[in-house]
Design a protein around this nucleic acid. Structure first.
Lengths: 352, 352
DNA sequence: GGTTACATTTGGATCGTTCCAATCAGCGGA
DNA sequence: TCCGCTGATTGGAACGATCCAAATGTAACC
């Protein structure tokens, strides 16, 4: 009986402290903690009472060390400030939490060097797996060098540049970009449009290429021609999109509708149209991609494609957890469906 | 020389593996790892080469266990999907990363029971400190029960209900809500408005009360009367705000301007005004709060208050890191300034 | 050659938990 | 009394790093 009861407050309570006070061994307390049926119910009660009394908190890191397990999942995002990824992160965290893991967060701000640093730092904490939405221009060798081949990786949203080393089995979760814009384009065609543009994005990003492909596919299937000036590149921001609006009308024939790279671009285009005296949703039809919060509240509400980012987050987490259960299973490439949300921006063409 | 060189790939490389191969002791390798000047440059080179060759990755958890340190900061948010908090999280993560820590994420979805669960789970991973933006209705005793008094806590954005136990020294970082709306109100007054409403939010949230107080303060200081029907409550969503617009004009005299609880509400009010045939920014002036992305792109651009959420995130992290450096320092209550961003929605009153 | 000084290196013990084989108490049956 | 059996409990050795006091080797000085 040392000077125990004085409660100096500042020292971590360990299994030993509890064991000593209860006159049992460390091992028994550990068994109680894990709810083992081996321990006698009377001693269990005593130990549990003591745990409560001393305010014991479990040291999962120590347990993980001994058991050679991990209880965390790392989530590395190129841009957390983007609401799409924020939702995604919320979904990941929810699923990861439900599975009894905890989320390690890392943001790369679209910098692939920062991505390397972040991966390097996170990997030292020994996550069971990593969910990575790569930064622009990040490549496979780089990622592999930073994290090694031991930790399972799930790639989200973008493919990596460079060759995948065959021995690193990395799973994939992508959005069905191509089908999305195909649906949007088909919808505009069904509305009666014949002159449809593809607006925004940079052609060197894989998602933009895929979205453009979906558009081109639908146009071709409908036997519609695409004029060169109907394909306008711009940064995926409202500001730049607004500024590039004029390019659509630089030559004849002008389009009557546009499939936009994403919602930000579509909203920018709305601004640009307004400035030209065209009312979007009446004089000109357009669609977006992402279904950000503003899409439903814009004037007019924006027809767009929703990827349900929170659900995608859950899905990503579950794919990774699946992989943890079966490390040897063959790698999976999952393409998540996107859904067309029809609102008022995709009006029929004016008869004029 | 066991069957080492065959590289079975699947086993973690430890200090021992390196040491054995280099014919030095574990301790020496450890010194190399930490860049100690004690070790001879020749052996250092040998060891470093071997580390690289075997693809060693540092096990920070083991080190933390031995050193009784921690290298993580927990970030618990009520709503990550909200862009404001997403930005905040990005700021926290950046600062936390710069300090050599890693961010543990937890979302509570505004549920105080979930908050308890999340805190309980995170605390087991032994973070050096916690940044908490409490869920609605969360209280001090609850939080204390979930995380104990050992780990430093920084509260962001909302106060906790219930009495703070005096022995838990918790730091605070709040926004200067009151000063914000006071500035906005003063700005409207300076524009020439005399009949100014306060629109939106629920009076039982502390931030709404503070914002209302700032408005009332400015009105009183200017000797302006506030009509009862100028104070309209509504949920902080665009939809509800649009629906409540009529309440402002339910009686005479009608206001010529409104200070809104936040941007969402202000954008909703814009919608509602449009529906009544009033053009916001010309026939009616209004201000928001938060400076969300859409504020600058709305029609008209919205005068609002910016709290620079990313900077607040950095600041929160730095306050917490500060506390880690001086655990015994007295608790700090920091009020972050907000800044008025004047755009076109806050026009002068029509002379009519 | 012996002593001291300095630069390197090292063998345990340790952090808080879990695993495992071994132990112990109690009891019924031979 | 001895044996085996069941149910509970336990001591030590891990996990992968760090700390510390002590050991080693080498050069320098008297």
């Amino acid at each position: 009986m040392a000077t125990e009861s004085t409660h100096p407050v500042h020292r971590k309570i360990t299994l030993n402290d509890i064991a000593r006070e209860c006159d049992v061994s460390r091992a028994t307390v550990s068994l109680v903690l894990r709810g083992s049926p081996l321990v006698n119910k009377h001693t269990r009660a005593r130990v549990e009472e003591e745990l409560r009394r001393q305010g014991y908190v479990y040291n999962r890191a120590a347990a993980n060390l001994r058991r050679r397990t991990s209880s965390s999942i790392a989530l590395v995002l190129n841009d957390l400030a983007n609401p799409f990824f924020a939702e995604f992160a919320a979904g990941v965290d929810a699923a990861v939490g439900d599975a009894g893991f905890v989320t390690l967060l890392g943001c790369t701000s679209e910098s692939s060097t920062r991505e390397q640093a972040v991966l390097g730092s996170l990997i030292e904490h020994g996550p069971a797996g990593i969910i990575l939405s790569p930064a622009e221009g990040s490549n496979a060798q780089q990622v592999l060098a930073a994290m090694g081949a031991q930790t399972p990786l799930l790639l989200f949203n973008r493919e990596l540049g460079g060759d995948l080393p065959e021995y690193a089995h990395w799973d994939l979760l992508m959005l069905d970009n191509q089908r999305g814009t195909r649906l949007a384009t088909e919808h505009l065609i069904a509305q009666g449009h014949r002159r449809i543009a593809f607006f925004g994005g940079h052609r060197d990003s894989s998602s933009c290429r895929q979205r453009h492909a979906g558009y081109a596919e639908a146009m071709q299937a409908a036997g519609l021609r695409i004029e060169p000036h109907w394909q306008v590149e711009c940064a995926p921001t409202r500001l730049d999109a607004a500024g590039q609006t004029a390019a659509l009308f630089a030559a004849e024939p002008a389009p009557t509708a546009a499939v936009c790279y994403n919602d930000a671009v579509a909203l920018g285009l709305m601004l640009g149209l307004n400035q030209r005296g065209l009312q979007p949703g009446r004089d000109f039809a357009l669609t977006g991609f992402d279904d950000i919060a503003e899409a439903s509240m814009s004037m007019p509400p924006l027809t767009t494609l929703t990827a349900a980012p929170r659900d995608r987050g859950r899905q990503a987490a579950e794919l990774l957890l699946q992989r943890l259960r079966e490390p040897a299973a063959s790698t999976r490439r999952t393409i998540a469906p996107v859904q067309l949300v029809i609102r008022e921006s995709s009006c029929p063409p004016t008869t004029a």
